[in-house]
Design a protein around this nucleic acid. Sequence first.
DNA 1: GTGCTATCTATTGGCAGCCAACATATTAAT
DNA 2: ATTAATATGTTGGCTGCCAATAGATAGCAC
Lengths: 113, 113
Amino acid sequence: MRADAVRGHLDGLLLAVLEQGPLHGYAIIAAVQQRSGGVLDLRTGTIYPALNRLERLGLLTSSWDAVGERRRRCYALTDAGRSSLAGERAAWREFTTAIGSVLNPGVQPRPAT
Amino acid sequence: MRADAVRGHLDGLLLAVLEQGPLHGYAIIAAVQQRSGGVLDLRTGTIYPALNRLERLGLLTSSWDAVGERRRRCYALTDAGRSSLAGERAAWREFTTAIGSVLNPGVQPRPAT
DNA sequence: GTGCTATCTATTGGCAGCCAACATATTAAT
DNA sequence: ATTAATATGTTGGCTGCCAATAGATAGCAC
């Protein structure tokens, strides 16, 4: 997959993997990688600035979590983040429908579940 | 839709609308707009450089077409363009599957038709 | 005890790729 | 004549992600 393919969809990915519970940065990368079947490999230079931005926007909160001597920064969704995630999902559906119907005319979009 | 949403998928869109027959630039814009249900509105600064690039790559050919006093440049798919389109479709499927399975885990991808 | 790898956070510069703005001409309607 | 639609094209700029870099802890092999 082209390296910068997630452009425009990053926020949704980050919010989505945090939906089931808080994670720290490194675990977010792993979760995205796993859930995408190994296809999406985000870099730290991608996610850390994005996580900071999402926190500034009030979509998530972070807290330092001590594991032995080690410190992890755990990110958790806020209510605003949860509703933003719903918006990202709607936008994703609209986006794939639009591109898909140009690329594969005649293929019906999946009905909303 | 965010203006630069097509980033990374433009070539596929252009090749796809030319699949059913040659079109000139302005008609390509209209075709994309129509097939996307009015969502995708490409600009000339987007498509003309892209069409030139695709022609340089041998994926399409252009010819001047006289309509009265007016000159239109018509673009047509080459065989290489047709097979590149197949590749773009495969890449699109991989891309949507990857992002989709992170964004909406539990939703099965559509089986290939 | 020393390399090596994995885990973990973080910043900065660069650049690909699309768009906005601009330029220009013909045609048709009012 | 003026306006709007049709039509082709170029250039500079910006957004947003990544590569590269930096640094720390921890565990394992040898």
